[in-house]
Amino acid sequence: MNPQLTNPRADEIDAILKRLPFAQTLGMRCEVLGDEMTAILPFQEKLIGNVAIRALHGGAIASFLELTAMLQVFLVSDMPRPPKPINLTIDYLRQGHAKDLYARAYVLKMGRRMASVRAEAWQENRAEPVTALMAHFLVATD
């Protein structure tokens, strides 16, 4: 464990990403500062959904946002493993260009059984999000 990390869960986030085959397929990584986490999806050709306009695939962006939301819940909780998704709604606001994508998630409510999370993904400008996600996760461990 890195003793300089202000949040000891940060190391676990890294370990989870390395253990998840699908996170490796996407090629995403996370940077954690305290309870704040920024997820990064470096651009790769395989993430393209429309070759004519060179746009990222909505499914790839949604997968990235779902993982970001899931890891944010894990980061601010004391759960032994990442939570399971119940449902999610994705708003595609702008076209995702063939560039790196960033995301942050906010836990709006951390309940005993459920967590309500919002996540946003952006490219050059944080104020112009590409995609927004609203998701619910099951956090009860029983």
Partner: peptide, 13 residues
């Protein structure tokens, strides 16, 4: 178990 994001991609498409 397959990741939910795969099902999202599949159903979106």
């Amino acid at each position: 178990v397959i990741h939910g994001g795969v099902i999202t991609t599949f159903l979106d498409n």
